[in-house]
């Protein structure tokens, strides 16, 4: 008799435990579904806000340097001035650079003189794309974006000082993983490169920072995967450009890029 009671009690306890377990399970499913739902909803809002924050290139809200085109490129003419005397029918060279990128500095060192020579002779058009893909290497100070935007301001308001400013930025290039250069330091570099005082004081312009971000997105859509990226269009039309493979064109060897470009003409 008693063993029968015990068995019944055990069965009841087991059934109760099962009901408890089922209840807990239901609760956890609801909790989990809510967490997933909320997190994804939050991420979606974040995504929409983020998308709205940066206007596409050419849209209102991002000020582009006057001479730049829809690709975000800044043309330098034969006289070394942005937007002046750019030979439209000559082969076009597009150079994508991040001021934080060490091998961009190397590229400049190796090719600057060659590119200047060809450009001054009117044999090529050179388009610079200061882009910001390395913001994560400047301890959240966004050095890549700030410096690309500063280059945009210089191109727009001090077009004759643009080349010197770029060269100086690479000479004073900070190491990856540091805070980069402060806005004040960039201003000093600009002044030393011949940028007028009023322009040098406006390098941190917010609209140009938006332009730098928009131009980077455009560059990425055009096939820029990293820096430096060198694209060449033999016809001089950006639509015909092809990104150079460093295995085919040895642009990290002295004279490699120059020989290739001379072969185009």
């Amino acid at each position: 008799m008693s063993s029968k009671n015990e068995r019944a009690a055990a069965a009841r306890a087991k059934a109760q435990a099962q009901v408890k377990a089922q209840e807990r399970r239901t609760t956890m499913i609801i909790v989990a579904a809510s967490v997933v739902g909320l997190a994804l909803f939050g991420a979606l809002i974040f995504f929409i806000v983020n998308q709205g924050k940066v206007p596409a290139l050419g849209e209102a809200g991002s000020t582009a340097p006057a001479a730049s085109d829809a690709s975000g490129g800044i043309p330098v003419g034969s006289g070394g001035v942005v937007g002046e005397d750019v030979p439209e029918d000559a082969p076009r060279v597009d150079i994508y650079l991040d001021f934080m990128c060490p091998i961009c500095g190397t590229f400049e060192q190796i090719n600057e003189a060659d590119l200047n020579e060809l450009r001054e002779a009117g044999e090529i058009q050179v388009w610079y794309h200061p882009v910001s893909i390395l913001d994560r290497f400047s301890n959240s100070t966004q050095f890549s974006t700030r410096s690309a935007a500063a280059a945009g301001v210089v191109a727009d308001r001090a077009p004759e000082a643009f080349l010197d400013f770029m060269t100086a930025m690479f000479v004073n290039q900070p190491s990856e993983g540091t805070d980069g250069l402060s806005d004040d330091q960039i201003e000093e570099i600009a002044l030393a490169a011949g940028v007028p005082e009023d322009v040098a004081g406006s390098l941190s312009n917010a609209d140009f920072r938006k332009w730098a971000t928009a131009a980077t997105t455009q560059a990425s859509q055009d096939g820029m995967q990293g820096t430096p990226t060198i694209a060449v269009s033999a016809s001089g039309d950006f639509a015909d450009m092809e990104i150079l493979d460093p295995n085919d064109v040895a642009y990290f060897s002295e004279g490699g890029l120059k020989a290739y470009l001379e072969g185009l003409g």
Partner: peptide, 13 residues
Amino acid sequence: MMDIPQSIIAVRA
């Protein structure tokens, strides 16, 4: 998370 634009570029790559 710290650099969403770069995450987007990485996906595009």
